[in-house]
Structures are given as structure tokens and as C-alpha cells.
Write a protein that binds this DNA or RNA. Structure first.
Lengths: 165, 165
DNA sequence: CCGGATTTGTTATAATGTAACCACACCCGG
DNA sequence: CCGGGTGTGGTTACATTATAACAAATCCGG
């Protein structure tokens, strides 16, 4: 499975950078970056793709860090709330945030063939004043923007296949 | 549960209109608008809110139209593919399309308090040139845009509560 | 009315997610 | 030191959502 951001990059570097940033951010915000939470974040970073809670749980279990679903879900909830990871609604899966610096408005590109996920931040003004302008009175707190399609690599190898086949 | 589009409207009218439009569309596209599919669509229209597959299945079961999950899921898949309904990823639920005329680019406003869902079409014709311009080569086929927050009514009655509690 | 394609019925099970309760560690004020 | 409050983790048990697989019925063009 290719995954990644559909682009080559220095992987070992982005893992260590993200860990350092997470440490710093949790220290600043008085959040406890406990072993379980740290390990879950590491797993997400290392795999660099969307992982189901039970996939993560399997790894935790193999390492003796917890064997029951709540352990994984609690750690994931923490990471999501802390802005360190995102939940991909379309896949019921989780992925490490790919740009910890700055604020949030994540958008995801999901390849339906290789299941790879790329995160690309959008400018909040783009949609806050656009799509939802016609809903006066509604107070938007969070937005999920997820596009499904084919990544460049899969387009080449499967371009004869239909979209929703 | 208020639900609806957070706005008053002529409900009996929108149900019958949508049914007629669905009939016409299926006839045109040579799709079989079978009793189960029609009934599921009716249920979605009548409730006018996001319904889980098992909620729908319960109604079908009460009416002797099928009692096992695949019956509901298949009908829902049909409706979604036909553009008659949408799946709300965030809620694992389904809702009738609220504007059958014209093409698609649905966006949803989900009230986290009353669970109401409003659909509001987005005008973006070419997603690749909008939020996803930074992902060259990716071929977008479908986009889910879901905003979570508080509707106007719930804002008034719960304005002291925090966002993610 | 034949024959392929589609739709439906059914069984069984997989995958995802939560409620509730207890134990532990830590901090902090008394 | 002690005792309560808070946050975290471990565990049991269960709820919810979804699909695979296969057989039977139905539809529809030719």
C-alpha cells in the first residue's frame, strides 16, 4: 500500500519532528503525553496512513500496552482533541496530523483504490463564507472535508476502470 | 427532535414532489424503483432527518418489507448511487436529498445538540481548483463536506455550554 | 417464453464503538 | 501524614454498524 501523502518525503524526519512538536505542545497546554498516547501517535506517524482503531489496538496489544478497545479509543480521542491526529469519517480511521504548525482546517484526499490519504489544509475563509453562508444562525464548530477519488499513481494503472464500479 | 432544515416548510408537499421526481428520474435512467427502495425513500422523506440503517430497517420490518440488515443497506446504497439520498459519514446515517433538481455538491450542517441535519448545496463546480488545488494529479470523484455545530434554535437554549464539552 | 441480469431473502459474522466500574497515581490542601 | 479530587488506564460486557456469501425470486430484452 503506497499511501503517504501521494508524494515522496523524508519519513524518519517527519516522525521525529512531529513527536518533538507534540511533546512541546502538550507541555505548553498542560496535557499529559502518556506512554499509551505517545505510542499511538508514533504508530500513526510511522504508518503514515489512515489506521482503524483496532489496527492500532493490535499493535498496542502486541507490545503489552493495552488489549481492550477503550484503550485505543481513549488515546485516539485525546490525540484528535489535541489536534495531533484527525479522524477520517469516510473510513472510520485515524491519521496523524501532517502539519502540526498553525491552526486547523484539514481536508482529505482519499484514494479509493490504494486507500492512501493525503491531508491538505484549506483556508477557513474559503468555506466559512462560502458553502455555509446560506445557513444563517448555524454556528459551525468543526468541518470535515473529505474527497474520494483516485490518486495520480492509481489513475495511471487503473484508468480503464469506472468510478464507482 | 426538530431536525428538518432548521427552517419551517411545507412538508407534505416536499414529500410528494420528491417522490414524483424520483419516479421520473428512475424511469429516465432505467433504474428499478422497487417497493422496498420506494418505501425507504418515503421513510427518509417523511422523517426528514438523518436515519440510521437500523432505524429504517425497523420500520421496514414492522411493515413486512424485510427484516435483515442487507435489505436496508442495499436500498440505501441504491438511493445514494441514484442521487436520491446522501450518507452522512459523521453520523453513519442517511438522509433524503433535499433538492433533487440539478447536479450535486451537497454540504451538511449537523447540529450536535438536536442531531438535526440541513443540506445546503455548494456551488463549487471544480473541486480540483478550489480546496484541493494543492493536490495535483488527484482525480476527485466525490466530496463529503460536513460541518458540525449548533443550529440557531439550540444556540439559544444552550448557549452556556461549551463546544466539545 | 427463454436466459441473463438484477433484485431480494436469509444466515452468519465482521468491524466499529461505548457504558460502566474499579484501581492506581498524582497533586494539593489541611 | 492523610484524605479527597482529578485524570488516566484496565477490564468486562455490550451496543451499533456493516458485509460476505449463497440461494431464490423477479424483471426484461430479445
Amino acid at each position: 500500500m503506497p499511501a503517504l501523502g501521494f508524494q515522496p518525503h523524508d519519513h524518519s524526519r517527519c516522525v521525529s519532528d512531529a513527536l518533538a512538536e507534540a511533546e512541546a505542545r502538550c507541555a505548553r497546554d498542560r496535557l499529559q503525553f502518556t506512554p499509551v498516547r505517545r505510542r499511538v501517535f508514533e504508530i500513526l506517524l510511522q504508518e503514515h496512513r489512515a489506521l482503524g482503531a483496532y489496527e492500532i489496538l493490535k499493535t498496542l496489544s502486541d507490545e503489552g500496552l493495552g488489549s481492550q478497545p477503550p484503550v485505543a479509543y481513549r488515546a485516539l480521542d485525546f490525540l484528535v482533541k489535541a489536534g495531533l491526529a484527525h479522524r477520517i469519517e469516510r473510513l472510520n480511521a485515524y491519521i496523524a496530523c501532517s502539519h502540526l504548525t498553525g491552526s486547523h482546517a484539514p481536508a482529505f484526499l482519499i484514494c479509493r483504490n490504494c486507500k492512501g490519504v493525503a491531508e491538505t489544509d484549506v483556508q477557513i475563509d474559503d468555506w466559512a463564507n462560502g458553502p455555509f453562508a446560506s445557513a444563517p444562525g448555524f454556528h459551525v464548530e468543526r468541518v470535515a472535508l473529505e474527497a474520494e477519488g483516485l490518486c495520480a499513481a492509481c489513475l495511471e494503472t487503473k484508468e480503464t476502470d469506472g468510478p464507482t464500479a
